[in-house]
Design a protein around this nucleic acid. Structure first.
Lengths: 340, 340
DNA sequence: CATGATCAGTTAAGCGCTTAATCACCCTAC
DNA sequence: GTAGGGTGATTAAGCGCTTAACTGATCATG
């Protein structure tokens, strides 16, 4: 009916006890007899009582919320399935609990820092999730300075920072070995921006593996995850000297974009050119030929990060959690290297 | 440095005034002299003071947050650029202000209702955004019962419910006329689930226009926005009796999926089959042939909805805001109908 | 039978902020 | 000289909940 929200004192009145007793009862703490507790509980949910988060936060200092800020231009974020999958995973781990997710999308790093600082100041969140770490990331410094519980989604940065990571290096190697087995020797990696730590990690793994496999000099080019940049870079690589027979991308959007470029250049995929996407998604399945991709457990990462964060907030130990390994899903965009 | 968050009483102490004075000063209300106000302000931001949202909510009853719950299966949500664009728009309108966005992704309607109810009970949000309305939507009833300010993103449902809507009907007509001009007469609409109001709105417009243009009986088939369902439905339609020469989809993912099916059936797009997507996105640009699409101002909708919601929360009048019109972006997936 | 324990509650302070009510001045006006 | 009127502040109550400290019983124990 009306818009009156019952408070514990309404319950207290109805039960003929003090508000203190009600609080103890509802929080399952000792101090009230079993029958009284039951009576209070009954009244509480007959009245449809829900604790006021503001009052709770104010008195116990916990916000029952965690924050995520995503700093990628709107242009990119719309296309990439990555974040929505991540958010799905996060919600999965949050479901049922008292904790909510505060989301912010910004388009510059300064705004992101400001958001974290504001949330902290307002005591709006108990902790935050950090994604897309860059070298010497100022956010890491910030959360440490503020003593704001945080979990890094990506790769271990320092032993005192909890994180959830995925073994990308092994996956890079697996992809390379797979391509080499198909006869490819000129393989170019189309990576994301250099500043991201995960870009560097993968590039390092790539370079090392290329050397180990005796493929000559490793070639890595960079784009910004957008289809436009990827198209530009791919076009240049494919029309330059000693063009590669296989391309490995850092996300799915860029790989799909490259498919268009190949088409435009009259290169048949996979007969003349093989393509591998990172981050499998419906996108990869949807296009023709369907893209071979490295599937990472994105939702799992999100869920694990949330669990870890809630742990850390609860005073648990700092851990570095490893997710299940990425796996290569071969589809129709990879095949034998062209002869000669 | 440390993790001590200053409160107004710290400021009061430093300024040698009462906390009341500090509060008046920081909120720009009368009751303090200009010099004192300035002094207080200075101290406040030297100390890096940020108001505690919990304390504020508790005392003034406002949460400074709005909520959005999206109820689509994780499988679908990851692919569709729609929501991320919507969220971008929402954030744009929120940026700079004191209001944050609380997001929840669920996979069933009951959980969605529960989320709204909980947020209301916890006084966590000042208002909510409602998307994907269905016929006689229980959420509308709920927010009215709770007197929870809400803005519907979609179509007007009732005069007392504020909403932001886009003129889909005209767009449907425009698309049809465009296709008819290209010589198409057998046009099938591949729609989203019937339960959504916007599906019905578009279907009605489609049926009416088909009749008016003398195209015989209107054909509408339904899928659930996913690529799998779209592929299934498209396959059936294209291999059935009197196959259409043009298909109009209710989102981008389904259209892309249909492109794959056409390929699989050896139908050349656009020579033998024309395809139109709803909701333009990078997806449409990325595939070959690039998809003709109806572009809707998604981010604009989000931003307008937020502005309206903040208005309503502030006690403003209930309005029905119309966004700019959708526009057809012709690309390579539409062409002359095949002869005969 | 006095002495602790134990149990079931109550009281009241406090979390950080807003705001109505009050107060102490100083200034005009009659 | 005193009533009235602004200013520029202070006081204190209250928002809804948690929790340490306290109160009164009831009950076993030496």
């Amino acid at each position: 009916m009306g818009a009156k929200r019952p408070t514990i004192s309404d319950i207290a009145k109805a039960a003929g006890v003090s508000t203190g007793a009600v609080s103890y009862a509802l929080n399952n703490r000792p101090g009230v007899s079993e029958p009284t507790r039951r009576r209070i509980m009954d009244i509480a949910d007959r009245l449809g009582w829900v604790p006021s988060s503001a009052a709770r936060s104010l008195s116990d200092g916990r916000a029952n919320a965690i924050g995520l800020v995503v700093d990628r231009p709107a242009r990119v974020i719309g296309v990439e399935p990555y974040f929505m999958q991540l958010i799905s995973g996060i919600q999965g781990a949050l479901a049922g609990g008292p904790t909510s997710l505060l989301l912010q999308v910004t388009d510059n790093a300064a705004a992101e820092l400001a958001a974290y600082r504001r949330w902290w100041g307002e005591r709006r969140v108990d902790g935050v999730l950090l994604v897309d770490l860059v070298q010497n990331d100022p956010r890491v410094e910030l959360v440490q300075e503020l003593r704001l519980p945080a979990v890094v989604l990506g790769e271990p940065v320092a032993p005192e920072v909890p994180c959830v990571w995925t073994d990308d290096e092994t996956a890079v190697i697996e992809v390379l070995e797979y391509l080499v087995a198909l006869g490819h020797r000129r393989i170019v990696r189309v990576a994301g921006p250099t500043r991201f730590v995960h870009t560097q990690t993968r590039s390092r793994a790539f370079t090392t593996a290329v050397a180990r496999l005796g493929l000559g000099e490793a070639r890595v080019v960079h784009a910004d995850y957008s289809d436009e940049a990827a198209a530009r870079v791919t076009r240049r690589v494919l029309t330059g000297g000693s063009p590669p027979t296989a391309l490995v991308f850092d996300n799915d959007v860029m790989a799909v974009s490259a498919l268009g470029v190949a088409h435009e250049l009259g290169l048949s995929v996979p007969d003349q050119l093989s393509l591998v996407a990172w981050d499998d998604s419906a996108l990869c399945r949807l296009v023709r030929p369907a893209l071979s991709a490295v599937r990472r457990p994105i939702a799992e990462r999100g869920a694990a990060a949330v669990r870890l964060l809630l742990d850390v907030i609860g005073g648990g130990p700092v851990e570095q959690v490893k997710t299940s390994d990425p796996e290569l899903v071969p589809r129709s965009s990879t095949g034998q290297a062209p002869a000669g």
